[in-house]
Simulated assay, not measured.
Amino acid sequence: MSLAEQIQKAWHDQAKWLVVLRPFSWLYRAIFLWQKTSKSKHAYRAPVPVMISGNITVGGSGKTPLIIALVEYLQSKSIKVGVISRGYGGKGEFPLLVTSDSTPEQVGDEPTLIVQRTHVPMAVGPNRQDAIELLLQHHHVDLILSDDGLQHFALQRDLEWVVVDANRGFGNEKLLPEGYLREPLSRLDEVTVIEHSAHPKTNLHMHLEPSKPYNLADRNQTFDVSLTYDAVVGIGFPQRFFNTLDNLNISYQKHAFADHHAYQASDFSAMKSQAMITTEKDAVKLKQLWHNDPEKLARVWVVPVQAVLSGDVYQLFNKQLLDLNPNFKINLSTFSE
């Protein structure tokens, strides 16, 4: 079990030894509240509305698939949308526009995936103001979606959506590092909460729907379910991917890496199978790693997922959009999921 998995398991299982980290959680809370207060006083207001999709926990919750689904919905309504992100894992130089030719090494894995899937105008950088200003220099947009950035209080926002993974829950409900909360649970009272669950208890919910795996080198190849694959994953909550493979009746060996892991050839030296299977987020990095080795690319199979949102989510989104800009009415006159 990787270190990332061990920490995630301790949080989820509410391991008793985590109490030794409580003083650090108190320190984290003090620093967090100070930063929230100080940065909010001088926060940047963008000239167009900003919506943030984020989470209050460490690790993946499904926010990037949600961003992709929202972008595709807005595009279908002819609403000009742009996206910003920190560009975690990218080396810049920031701020930087993301294009179809951008690599994960430059802009990060999630921005690369978002643009490859949607071709949306996008800019990345740790300074969100700089990213927005660069984006608006090159594109006219009516709305900006921020992939994460809920805790980036230097940026004013008009809408805040938080994805809550019902399968993970909140563990021991403690702040970092005793638990995996980035903010107190009371923060959920201030935002729109989207429940990520296949068996939801609320009206505002989503789930990830996997599709048939495709080959990274040739999408026309037929997937062989009888093989045992090396399951390679570097996301915030690796078990979600393994659960997906179980549901697809795929046999595999686990290889979990840290979120946003920068893959090296040595990571695969101990893998014994002739084929591996991975997420779309990891695939963009493997494609970069082996871009000159089609034989290795042909070994990689990718499981695509799509965020499926409830009708109530779309209805609420429409209402919030109209509140932001009544001119959107003509675009949203015909509701569709």
Rank of each mutant, 00 (worst) to 15 (best):
L309G: 07
K80H: 13
S53P: 05
D267S: 10
F170H: 10
H291Q: 15
A4S: 15
N172P: 14
S186C: 07
K272C: 11
N331F: 06
A265Y: 11
Q14P: 05
L289I: 02
L21S: 07
Q14H: 13
D312L: 02
R29W: 13
A123E: 03
M51E: 09
A15P: 07
F328Y: 13
W11E: 07
E72N: 13
H12N: 14
Y180W: 15
S25G: 05
Q106G: 04
N318I: 01
S211P: 04
V50W: 05
L227G: 08
V308N: 12
L27V: 08
A123N: 05
D224T: 02
F223N: 04
K16H: 03
N325M: 02
K91W: 00
R117I: 03
T278R: 06
H261K: 08
Q264P: 01
I250V: 09
D130K: 15
Q264W: 02
I250A: 06
T118R: 13
V71I: 10
L134C: 08
D312E: 10
T202N: 12
T112H: 05
Q75Y: 06
W17I: 10
V308P: 10
P95T: 04
R182K: 14
T222F: 00
I79V: 12
Q6F: 11
I56E: 03
L176E: 11
S76T: 14
K296W: 09
V225K: 15
V164M: 05
G92T: 08
A69K: 10
S78Y: 06
G82Q: 01
R128V: 04
Q239M: 09
K36P: 00
G171I: 08
V98F: 04
N331K: 02
P49Y: 02
Q35V: 09
L113N: 02
V233D: 06
I79P: 05
T192E: 14
S76R: 14
L248Y: 09
A231L: 03
K281Q: 10
A154K: 15
F242Q: 00
L150V: 07
A43E: 11
A283K: 11
N215H: 08
P47T: 05
N167E: 05
R157L: 01
N327L: 06
V284T: 03
L227H: 11
N167G: 04
V50H: 14
L324W: 07
V163I: 12
E72G: 07
Q156I: 09
M276L: 14
K77N: 10
L74D: 07
W34V: 01
F328I: 04
L150Y: 15
G87D: 08
F32G: 01
G108Q: 04
Y28L: 06
I52A: 06
H119Y: 04
D323G: 03
E209L: 09
E209G: 04
Q129K: 13
M1N: 13
I330D: 12
F24Y: 00
L113R: 09
K9D: 15
S211C: 08
S266N: 12
E295P: 03
Y28F: 14
R45H: 03
D101Q: 11
P304G: 01
